[in-house]
Simulated scan of single mutants.
Amino acid sequence: MPSLSLRVAGAVALAIALPFAATACGGGGDENSIVIGTKFDQPGLGLKNPDGTMSGFDVDVAKYVANELGYGEDQIEWKESPSGQRETLIQNDQVKFIAATYSITDSRKEKVSFAGPYLVTGQSLLVRADNTDITGADSLQNNKKLCSVSGSTPAQRIKDQYPGVQLQQYDTYSACVEALKNGAIDAVTTDEVILAGYAAQSPGAFKIVGEPFSEERYGIGLKKDDTELCNQISDAIKKMEDEGAWKAAWDKNLGPAGVEAPAPPALDPC
């Protein structure tokens, strides 16, 4: 049986180790890092490059916010955040916050809180460049095969407003775009800014058609009712806009797609 001194030493060591273990499991990583959720497959917004680096407008917004919170780029751990998993990742403390083309909606606000919006866009359609019979949302009703992502706002809007469409739901927009490329589906729907990134990635292969038929307000998702963090993120977004870093991030990531930088939207109170 261990001596009393050994048992006391072991208990002290365990007491010291436990707080560090608990911290490392939280959404912020350990005290020297932060876990941020974003998309890994959306060119121009959130993309994991072949060399492992991250790029895109959402990524640059997240980096700026993290820096304002006291974390350098080398202290960020990126967590892939598919549309259908975002609330769960936040609720389970797997991320500190998520910047991933995350539309602010009333139903989502029941589960998580949002800082922002930092961008307003609208739902649109991407088709093959030689397509002539899809001109907008109403032309989809004729048994067209349309692809969107499970758990996304655009997919739900199609279900609610365009019941005559054959909606195919995939896990990622990149899978939808691949299906569009090989002719398995007729169109892809999501926010125009996302579609523009894919169109720019494959010049001449696709085109965006029709006018946007929704308003999507992108926010940064975080733990519900964490007002302190929400205010810190909102202050960072405002500073990014005021300093010109917001427009610079847009021009770098989405300018090549030929999409003009919009005016930054007014921020909601936390």
Rank of each mutant, 00 (worst) to 15 (best):
V95E: 05
V95I: 10
K96P: 01
K96G: 14
K96N: 12
K96R: 11
K96L: 12
F97P: 02
F97H: 07
F97N: 13
A99Q: 06
A99M: 04
A99T: 11
A99D: 05
A100W: 02
A100V: 02
A100E: 13
T101D: 10
T101V: 03
Y102F: 10
Y102I: 05
Y102N: 09
Y102K: 15
I104D: 00
I104C: 00
I104H: 00
I104G: 00
T105P: 02
T105W: 08
D106L: 04
S107M: 03
S107G: 02
S107H: 02
S107C: 04
S107R: 04
S107A: 03
R108V: 02
R108I: 02
E110Y: 07
E110I: 09
K111E: 06
K111H: 15
K111S: 05
V112Q: 07
V112A: 13
V112M: 01
V112D: 01
V112E: 06
V112P: 01
V112H: 11
S113C: 10
S113P: 08
F114D: 00
A115H: 05
G116S: 13
G116L: 01
P117L: 11
P117E: 09
P117A: 07
Y118I: 04
Y118C: 08
Y118S: 05
Y118E: 05
V120W: 00
T121W: 04
T121V: 11
T121E: 09
G122M: 07
G122F: 02
Q123P: 15
S124N: 15
L125I: 12
L125E: 01
L126Q: 06
L126G: 00
L126R: 05
L126M: 10
V127S: 03
V127H: 06
V127L: 06
R128A: 01
R128W: 08
R128Y: 03
R128K: 10
A129P: 00
A129F: 04
A129L: 15
D130R: 15
N131M: 12
N131C: 09
N131A: 11
N131W: 10
T132P: 05
D133Y: 10
D133A: 08
I134N: 15
T135G: 05
T135Y: 06
T135V: 09
T135Q: 12
T135S: 08
G136W: 00
G136D: 12
G136S: 11
G136V: 13
A137H: 09
A137Q: 12
A137D: 12
L140P: 09
L140K: 14
L140T: 14
Q141R: 03
Q141A: 11
Q141C: 02
N142G: 01
N142E: 12
N143F: 02
K144A: 15
K144D: 15
K145P: 00
L146D: 01
C147D: 11
S148V: 00
S148C: 01
V149N: 09
S150A: 14
S150M: 04
S150D: 14
G151F: 14
G151Q: 10
S152C: 15
T153Y: 13
T153D: 06
P154S: 05
A155Y: 08
A155C: 03
A155T: 03
Q156M: 08
Q156W: 10
R157G: 05
R157E: 10
I158G: 02
K159S: 13
D160V: 05
D160I: 03
Q161I: 08
Q161V: 10
Q161H: 15
Y162G: 01
Y162A: 13
Y162S: 01
P163S: 07
P163F: 05
